[in-house]
Design a protein around this nucleic acid. Sequence first.
DNA 1: ATCAATTTGTAACGTTATAACAATTACGAC
DNA 2: GTCGTAATTGTTATAACGTTACAAATTGAT
Lengths: 145, 145
Amino acid sequence: MTEKPKRRDTAGLIAAELAGTAKPHTAYELLERLRPSGVFAPTTVYRALEKLLASGKIHRIESLNAFVACRGAEGAPHDHGHGELGIGFTVCDRCAAVAEFEDASLQSRIEAAAAAGAFVPRSSIVEIHGLCAACAGEGPAAGRP
Amino acid sequence: MTEKPKRRDTAGLIAAELAGTAKPHTAYELLERLRPSGVFAPTTVYRALEKLLASGKIHRIESLNAFVACRGAEGAPHDHGHGELGIGFTVCDRCAAVAEFEDASLQSRIEAAAAAGAFVPRSSIVEIHGLCAACAGEGPAAGRP
DNA sequence: ATCAATTTGTAACGTTATAACAATTACGAC
DNA sequence: GTCGTAATTGTTATAACGTTACAAATTGAT
Ligand SMILES: [Zn+2]
Ligand SMILES: [Zn+2]
Ligand SMILES: [Zn+2]
Ligand SMILES: [Zn+2]
């Protein structure tokens, strides 16, 4: 049986919006979608996003200022905390689809690069831009639409 | 002998501001600094930044919305075009110092991760947050000041 | 019931980035 | 020279992204 929360669960609403799509959504896109549910202020959205980020349920794509649900490497949600090294994303510049990957040897390369500069790493951001498999078949790219 | 440009060389002014420091500057910080030189509008700054990015003279740090001069891996400017795979940055969360590195094996890991998802990479973003050598010695971190 | 702690809401503001269009400068053709 | 054109720069306004400060509501204890 599903519990009906006494308070509105903004984080839950956002998680639901992000689930089921590989397209990132900006905070203001989410705000628009949650307006019918009574969410009217950016603050509310950003607070909920913060919680979801902290719990690892979503990820922020820095180069898009947007957010995606965590899907793990294989489509199944995994249990990394936030900020771990060795995870990354591919971002299609044509259709905006984002895929997540986790790669231990990428992680070790990042740690090695940090070590080479006597740098103590705490988190890393890896975002690969290009064309997804579907879009690569459809002729040359068109910037970042 | 140095050529005196007939037009104001906004890109040159920005390059001069960014040279000689490892601290990233935002577009609006640069605007403030260029105000005495007669630059008053964000547009002007962003246009100049665009050119500098295209020519590889500066890099954009996505996670800070800020810009640093290209210094290459060893402190000497190198000649990568923009968007190449395999370059990355360390970003100190305490003092904001940014260092650039280039790592062929990191590049090959990124290409492999892309290939695993049938993704065609065109550019990559690698930013490692943590503490620089100087700051790591000074006690625990303090968020991202 | 009263209290303090937590969560949510509201309003205003600050920062980052772009769009649309006008004015100026450079430069070759005439 | 001056005309025409392309490239660059300037101006104004606006869009997009994010935070601060504080008020109101909910909760769970005492
Ligand atoms: Zn994830
Ligand atoms: Zn695509
Ligand atoms: Zn560089
Ligand atoms: Zn530091």
